[in-house]
Computed example of a mutant assay.
Amino acid sequence: MSTAPGPRDRGRERDRDEEGRARNQRPRDGLGRPLPYGAEGVDRQPEGVVRTPEESVAQAQALLDAGRPFHAHEVFEDAWKTGPEAERGLWKGLAQVAVGLTHSARGNTKGGARLLLRGAEAVAEWSATSGLPRPYGIDVAELADWARELSARVAENSDDAVPIDAAAHAPRLRGGTPE
Results as ranks from 00 to 15, higher is better:
residue 35 L to T: 04
residue 69 P to W: 02
residue 71 H to D: 13
residue 73 H to S: 04
residue 92 K to W: 10
residue 95 A to H: 01
residue 45 Q to G: 03
residue 40 E to K: 10
residue 80 W to H: 12
residue 166 A to W: 02
residue 16 R to C: 11
residue 2 S to W: 05
residue 41 G to W: 02
residue 81 K to I: 05
residue 20 G to I: 08
residue 19 E to D: 14
residue 27 P to T: 00
residue 27 P to D: 01
residue 46 P to H: 10
residue 58 A to R: 12
residue 24 N to P: 04
residue 156 E to C: 03
residue 87 E to V: 02
residue 80 W to A: 09
residue 17 D to L: 11
residue 177 T to G: 07
residue 163 P to W: 08
residue 150 L to H: 09
residue 9 D to A: 14
residue 89 G to F: 09
residue 23 R to C: 12
residue 20 G to H: 11
residue 129 T to I: 13
residue 112 G to H: 01
residue 31 L to R: 08
residue 55 E to M: 05
residue 25 Q to H: 06
residue 97 V to F: 08
residue 42 V to Y: 01
residue 133 P to V: 05
residue 58 A to K: 05
residue 100 G to L: 05
residue 116 L to K: 03
residue 44 R to E: 15
residue 12 R to E: 15
residue 38 G to K: 00
residue 67 G to F: 13
residue 98 A to V: 01
residue 11 G to E: 08
residue 174 R to I: 02
residue 125 E to W: 00
residue 120 A to C: 04
residue 119 G to N: 07
residue 37 Y to Q: 09
residue 119 G to D: 06
residue 77 E to K: 11
residue 170 A to S: 10
residue 40 E to A: 09
residue 62 A to D: 14
residue 57 V to F: 02
residue 164 I to D: 04
residue 131 G to I: 07
residue 72 A to E: 02
residue 6 G to S: 08
residue 85 E to S: 11
residue 46 P to Q: 15
